[in-house]
Design a protein around this nucleic acid. Sequence first.
RNA 1: GAUCGCAUAGCUCAGCUGGUAGAGCAUUUGACUUUUAAUCAAAGGGCCCUGGGUUCGAAUCCCAGUGCGAUCACCA
Length: 487
Amino acid sequence: MGINPYPAEKFDVNAFSKDIKENYDAEKGNYQEVSLAGRIMMKRVMGKASFAELQDSSGRIQIYVNRDEICPGEDKTLYNQVFKKLLDIGDFVGISGFAFVTRMGEITVHVKEFKYLSKSLRPLPIVKRIKNEETGEEEIFDAFTDPELRYRRRYVDLVVNPHVREVFLKRSKVINSMRNYFNDQGWIEVETPILQPLHGGAAARPFVTHHNTLDMPLYLRIANELYLKRLIVGGFDGVYEFGKMFRNEGMDRTHNPEFTSMEIYVAYKDYVWMMGMVEECLEKVCVAVTGGTKVKVGDNEIDFKGPYRRLSMYDSIKEYTGIDVSKMDEAELRDVCKQLHIETDNSMGKGKLIDEIFGEKVEDHLIQPTYITDYPIEMTPLAKKHRTEEGLVERFELFVNGKEIANAYSELNDPIDQRERLEDQLSLAERGDDEAMVMDEDFVRALEYGMPPTSGLGIGIDRLTMMLTDNASIQEVLFFPQMKKEV
RNA sequence: GAUCGCAUAGCUCAGCUGGUAGAGCAUUUGACUUUUAAUCAAAGGGCCCUGGGUUCGAAUCCCAGUGCGAUCACCA
């Protein structure tokens, strides 16, 4: 028939379905020469006239096709063969025509020209949506819901499930609004190595790879903290990076082997200042993504409007267990764990025991955004010692809906203290702790050149997006979550 | 890593105590010039996840495996 199913030339679009549906006014007579392109998602043929639904990037709109209008001469092939027979759901077409309202009251594009843009060889899942006349709610039939198929063929998921598309648009807004906020403060977006000779900056098992020319092992980064602090040494006042981190650990609904974190370091600040910054930033992000400061997460309504409650870790334990652990030694803490029915083992030090109690008894209660401050020194080798409290560091984590979404310190900039703390980690590693940090001599050397007092912050972007889109699974906020091999 | 659940047509799902594989939508053919989950008439469509076993006979029962999900443990 001489029809190219995959034409090379461009097709100029001058309107989107959403704009037409929102702004068409029969009295004004606007949108009388529109060109749209998209996929055919439904077809209703009735002899010499037909209706179809065209889906473009903004949504769907009904189109009306009349045989004698798209085929004015004797040759009715374009309508009878091409439109009625060959055109399948999922095919891309370009149309030109004018907007009007049907007898049923639906804004529709009356097609004058019709062009094949691309053929779909595989059938799309057909998802039907109908408005229930009694309730007014939209009911969905034959939804494409199988999680395995949705994740493996995300492209199909995105075509047929508009709510999925919406999640990823929000994810983009999370990152963009945060980036805009940082840029407005004059901080610099930077990039640091993903392939690192040492996997520093966090406690996790890395992925290992090998560089052929250098003939040396390289690690996919588990964190970028140590590199960002080198840049503060180098004289930047504020640096931040959005980037993928890689951890070779278990997978579940909140863990993917690669995930996105945002880390920021600002010179001449401390963790108290950082709490104020985070409040301001998250409030703006929440408004950008959801339109307001309140967001529904599961059964709770979270309000991201600052200021957030601030509670030291010891006080939080006292509040939810009635026990003051602040002066306890390791043996006493072990007794407390026993009393609270928390399992412990001998490798756990004082810091770990406190963390266990916190995790078991406090975390779940922290629904509205809450800063937990001042952590035991043992678990935090990169944070500065507390200015007044012995045995603690200047650190906070932000908890929302019972989950941690941000972690921040007054950064340790004393090179002698830093070396000792990393050496303590080494001895932990020798005792069998496979999550202990490694010594990074160059990083300590950088601190020896002098780093200004600095506050640093890390936010898990995937987790934050899950919260702001009310998704319980990380796979719902990643386009392509890691899957096992397809059989 | 442990426990539990699921796997049948392109999609969503039935399929009982074992006896020729089912529906709706989609697809194909035909009718229909403003329909809207269009309608009406007809047709095609299956490695019942894989491999063993029990049985005269297995989608169904048993064992093993694979994939996915949920809960738990570890972590962000």
